[in-house]
Amino acid sequence: MNELWTIAEQKNGKLKSVSFELLSRGRKLADEMNAKLCSVLIGGPMKDETLQELFHRGADMAYVVEDERLEDFIVETHSNVLTDLIETYKPHTILAAATTSGRTMMPYVAIKVNTGLTADCTELAIEEGTNHLLQTRPAIGGNIMATIKTPNHSPQMATVRPKSSRPLPENTSRSGEILRVKLKEELVDARVKVLGIRKDEEEFANIEEADVIVSGGKGMKKEENFGMLRDLASHFNAVIGASRDAVDRGWATYPHQVGLSGKTVSPKLYICAGVSGSIQHLAGIKTAEHIVAINSDPDANIFQVADFGIVGDLFEVIPALNKKLEMEKGGAPDEI
């Protein structure tokens, strides 16, 4: 039976949610081509009971290579391990998340196992008859959607954006086989060493994985005004984003930058204020599910892509919005 693999990710013995998002994509594809869905975890030590969630979320089987030396992602060693697994078990298809590690390991492995790889797919399907993976991705700044396949090489490999699919509901009656594969010494590449991790801010902004982003642009006028955006963000548990203009002016740091030279994001809700909507910015938010724009210029480009837009002074609109949201949260009556 063909196997479809999804790459699970972990941190300190806990599975990251991208592991389950990939299984939900993988389950559909595996059913279409009657394949076995296997989650592949290369990382630090994992308990059996933690791994059960992989089965509850759709996996039929789990390959686990665990070792203290695999806790931190190091592309050389992780790629060696995945390459060895591929050569041993010959999967039909491998999906990984387009995280910093997925986007580093997958291109490395694709070269080592001599196959194609498509980055950042938004849609995946199985071609009838051939069982080739049809991989659709935005390209050229989101101007086109290209469907790509790898007809003559194996395995079929693709990365998909975090948050672009939802995990399946947990079904605790499902179970599966855990196959633990011992880490072979010769696969450990000791050239690169992890010295540590540093967090800059209390809440490190990871806008690529955010469900809701509240973004500010040049129209915010100064850094202090981002305060009202942070208030707004707190109502949605959102992460702060910024346009290039705002980052270049020092109102927000680079990890917050949305757009072609920053991050491409795909949240469920993108709220932006004082963002005019340059082509570069729009390209970075095209895959957002809902876009809300607040801008004083009725001709701003941002309104072309907005699902809901308010033409008005953001310094009036945002405080009013914050006030209403505060009232709703407090369960205040509709009328005061």
């Binding site: 001599n114 790898t150 837009g309």
Partner: peptide
């Protein structure tokens, strides 16, 4: 190894409410 088999043109305008 990869071949482009199809190109689509997504519409830019979402036609939202303003």
């Amino acid at each position: 190894p990869t071949k482009v088999v199809k190109i689509d043109f997504p519409t830019v305008t979402r036609g939202g409410t303003v």
